[in-house]
Simulated assay, not measured.
Amino acid sequence: MESENQTHESEFLLLGLSEDPQLQPVLFGLFLSMYLVTVFGNLLIILAITSDSHLHTPMYFFLCNLSLTDICSTSSLVPKMLLKIQTESKAIIYGGCLAQLCFFVFFVCMDNLLLTLMAYDRYVAICHPLHYTVIMNPRLCVLLLLICLLISTVDALLHTLMLLCLSFCKYLEIPHFCDLTQILKMACSHTFINNIVVYLSTILLGIGPVSGIIFSYTQIVSSIMRIPSTGGKYKAFSTCGSHLSVVSLFYGTAIGV
């Protein structure tokens, strides 16, 4: 492997899941079907929320944005993967790889922060029901969403711009997609500062939101246990069931990856 500084001329090779030609149609059909289900499922959620005035509440406002973010995050990876399988081309230019990385980091960060906002919304609804409409007013919801957009943009641009300072070898092989840690491993120059930024952002934007979700549900469970009737406890907890399922799926998948 050559160690020349060819940062802006390099091509990354996405190895994919398998090089077996017989498996390519199977992989193409599998990823295409999952992509279509994801896109159309989230589009139906967005359509249902926007068309029904009874769903114009803070929880569904955040859910609508979460569905939009899921569509965008999936679209930042899967179409390129499908094209690679169909054309049997593994190459992706350096700029294209950075763009894919930037969008993916942005939307994953948005997912993470939106799940935290939804946990906070449930915390206010169950622990402070009499003040819910005052606290979770439309102005605050929009402000929280804008803060999430700002944080996600800064995080994505920070990682992407710092990669521009690195030099890479001529031939670079990445397992599946343009993942930040995999790209850093391919760099020919020192990546100490980049790794520090990755660790700090993981702590602030990974452990921080998870801690917020855990704290919210600790308070929620404590409030629910003080409800005297079993029916009241079930009704209060049922409002959190869908959010807990999404949280488990999101972080479970992230930990698995």
Rank of each mutant, 00 (worst) to 15 (best):
S89A: 12
Y120I: 15
C102M: 15
Y123A: 10
T116Q: 15
D121C: 15
I85L: 12
A119D: 10
Q86I: 11
D70Q: 12
C102K: 09
L101H: 06
L98G: 07
Y123D: 07
A91R: 13
I85Y: 07
T74D: 02
S89K: 14
I92E: 01
C97G: 06
L114C: 03
G95H: 03
F106A: 04
C102S: 13
F103M: 15
D121H: 15
I71M: 15
R122L: 13
L114S: 02
C72V: 04
L117Q: 09
P79V: 01
L115N: 03
C102N: 14
F106R: 05
A91Y: 09
F107W: 13
L77P: 00
G96P: 05
G95D: 06
A119R: 10
L82H: 03
D111L: 04
D111C: 13
C109P: 05
L115I: 07
T74M: 04
E88P: 05
M118S: 12
S76N: 08
D121M: 11
A99C: 11
K90V: 01
K84F: 00
D111N: 11
A91C: 10
T87A: 09
L101A: 10
L101C: 10
Y123V: 12
K80N: 00
S73Q: 14
L98K: 07
L98D: 02
D121W: 11
L98S: 08
L77H: 05
C72H: 06
M118D: 05
M81T: 08
E88L: 13
D70C: 13
G95N: 07
V105A: 13
A91M: 12
D70T: 10
Q100W: 08
L115K: 00
Y94A: 05
E88Q: 14
T74G: 08
